[in-house]
Design a protein around this nucleic acid. Structure first.
Lengths: 163, 163
DNA sequence: ATGGATATTTGCAGCCTTAAAATATCAAAA
DNA sequence: TTTTGATATTTTAAGGCTGCAAATATCCAT
């Protein structure tokens, strides 16, 4: 009997294995749910895509502007990618590329006045959506989740770095 | 003084607002980190994309097969999409479309023997990656995270449904 | 001045996505 | 039985994001 109540290390390892997978799948489902919702609303309400919103969001946090490479790093996408997204935003008059005074190879991307105004409006709505999406959780739960995600970020970053 | 230590409801609401946003951004960062890692490894190790892997994963969990519409619902993507992904997998001999005996409009998609074999191999590696990515968290932390995500899923699903 | 990094852009090819129109079939009402 | 409205799926078309590799331009240390 005790042989079955206390799983051997092999069984135990497999069970832990499956648990991590379920954990990930649940997390992915949550994120997709929220992300899809946000994408849809950004499109329907503001006619903008998530990557473009993200880029503007990075710039808003760095009023002095960011180099393309910095954007690439922060957004975790390749450089060629940032070029395309930036092009589009420039076309729409929401951001500008300025020559870097220090480095003639580099551009510094900044929000335009209109871009800043536009972003603020979207960010406000975005925050409201978030409040709504998380409103079913208690403040304690949200705080705990926030802390656990910090632990996860550390763990995953470390593991992803190897290899 | 006490005027500053106890924020009025306006300030408080704004602070809570910002917290939800930060929580989401952190969650998104975590998910992207893991997802990008998984995508990269699926591609480099098995030459497959995440959506295709996901579709096979759904089928593995439903050995009796699934209709296109069910796949669409479970994967949270549009129907036209499932068609494309399925086409590709059929071309590679990993899944088959069988006519539904009940409903002549519908197909039932199933893994082929090769598809099942192929998926099992990938799933094993996938699980190992997960174990690695979560290994920096204690079992307690992972359990807590799992439960909190359940709460989030409920909360977000409810909020997303409105509208 | 030379050679090796660095910052970006470009072009390519693949994939995913939505949206709307087209097919085919089902199921129930008239 | 015919009609009609819903359902299941595909097709088509247009738009965007993505990574990767090659091409440019510039920087910096030797």
């Amino acid at each position: 009997m005790s042989k079955n109540t206390i799983p051997d290390s092999e069984t135990r390892a497999t069970a832990e294995h499956a648990k991590d997978l379920r954990l990930w799948l649940r997390m992915l489902a949550c994120t997709n749910l929220i992300e899809n919702h946000v994408r849809a609303r950004l499109r329907s309400d503001f006619d903008i895509t998530l990557p473009r919103f993200d880029l503007m969001s990075q710039l808003e946090r760095s009023p002095q502007g960011l180099k393309m490479g910095e954007l690439s790093k922060r957004m975790m996408v390749t450089g060629g990618n940032v070029t395309g997204i930036t092009d589009q935003l420039v076309r729409e008059g929401l951001v500008v590329r300025e020559d870097s005074p220090k480095d003639r190879r580099a551009y510094i991307v900044k929000l335009t006045a209109e871009g800043r105004k536009s972003f603020r409006r979207m960010a406000e709505a975005h925050e409201d959506w978030m409040v709504g999406l998380f409103s079913g959780m208690s403040e304690t739960q949200r705080d705990e989740l926030y802390d656990l995600l910090a632990a996860l970020k550390t763990s995953a970053a470390k593991a992803a770095a190897k290899r």
